[in-house]
Structure formats: C-alpha cells, structure tokens
Amino acid sequence: MKLTKILLSAAVAGAMAFAASNASAVTTFPMVKLSLSGSLTFSTETATTNGTAIKSSSLKTVSFNSQKLIDRLNASPTFVAALTNQFSSTLSNSVPKGSYFVWDFYNEELIITNKNGFSFTLDSNKSGDDFGYLDYFDDYLTGTWSKNGTTDAGSEDDLIGVYFYFNDNNGAEIESYGQATLHWTYAPMTAGSQKTTLSASMSGDGYYATANNSNNNEAASTFHASGSGTATDPVTQNPFYVWDY
C-alpha cells in the first residue's frame, strides 16, 4: 500500500514537472509597435480630348502613413461593419483616436490597438474580411548572432523577406514585397527565459496597388515600416535565425 502511494506521488510529480517544462517552452515573441508609410503612383486612365489629340490623365501619387490607413479603414462601410460585428455594438464603429499598428511577428498579423484596451486584428477577425497583414518568409532568412556562453545574453541581426498587404475593402489596396532587418537583443537568462527586444525596419516596392479602384493596371507603390517591441521569450528560441531553421 505504502509503495503504491509512493509510486503514485512520483507519477504525479513527474506529470507536473513535464507540464511545467512544456509551459515554459510556450512560444512568445515581442509585439512590434509599427509605423507604416509609403506611396502609390497610379493613372486614373481617363482619356480627355484636346482638339485633335487624345491623351490619358497624368500619373498621380498619394502617400500613406499609419493614421491615413486607419482613416481609410474608418471610411470603409465593410470595416465599420466588421468592427460592429467584432464588438457586438453599433457604438464601436470606428478606430479610436491615438490608435496605432502592432505587428504580431510570429502570427504575421497586423493589429490596430491603443492604450485603453482597443484591439482589432486586421486579418483574423470575426467578420471573415481580410483588411491586411504582414508576412515574413522563412525561406529568405539569414542572420548573424552572438551570445554569452554563461548568461545567454546576446544580440542578433537578421535579414528576411516580407510581404505587406492592406485592403480597406472600399477601393484602397496595397501589396508590397520587400526586405526587413530584424535586430534582436537578449538580456541575461532567468529560469529558462530572457527579456528579448526586437527592432524591425523594412522597405519594399509595389506589386499591386490602387487608391480608389480607378487604375486599370498595377500601380507602383513603395512601402516602409519600422518599430520595436519587448517580451520575455524562452531562451531556446533565441537566436531566432537558428530556431526558425
């Protein structure tokens, strides 16, 4: 009887230890507060007659930054419906002032959030409508890193391919491919985790873009984003470059 109890206790302790080790290995990454900017150049493709000559309208370039993208979303009936659906309230029909973009790096999601608890994921939201995301390409990842053999503190610099997509579902759509630099710093390890800061900077050129559905062909766009974030990550996933491969 006594032996059974000892074995049972040992089994419970083993299970708890296994669960704890698994819990500490949960994947987390810094959420990067991102500033987005860029431009779109397009033709309205409306021909005008001037005497005997017929010509198209001139190319037009417009710019965007984070706030202007949010303004476009707020002006989109589809986005307003998605917000209302997300929060089950007709009062939640626009992004609050002072909101900003955050890049959920690992899940490749763009989130609009603020300090007062507002949070809306542009792609994986309840509406099923996709308003945008920021992908990275594991296949185009390379980097350098160094760590202290005792404390595991260190830093890393990676280069990686990225793809930015934005769609207000109301005429504005941007697709850009580019390259990002990821700068990581790791603080000394404490109990299998370490404070990790990720600073990202990226730029790209256009694949497809339209400001108001008016351009017939692909328009040229440029895209730039930068920002940083901090989290407590498992030591095992740093360096990211090595872990991801």
Binding site: S37, S39, L40, K60, T61, V62, S63, F64, N65, K68, L69, D71, R72, A75, N170, G171, A172, A211, N212, N213, S214, N216
Partner: peptide, 20 residues
C-alpha cells in the same frame, strides 16, 4: 513624402470593371 496628397484624400470609390 509630406508634400504628397494623402491616400485618404482620394477615397472616392469608382465601380470595378469586370476585368478588375
């Protein structure tokens, strides 16, 4: 960049053509 008009200034949506 700051001298350009913003994307939010061109929010007049035109109907999509069948090709689009």
């Amino acid at each position: 960049f700051l001298s350009l008009p913003g994307i939010s200034d061109s929010n007049v949506q035109l109907p999509l053509t069948p090709e689009q």
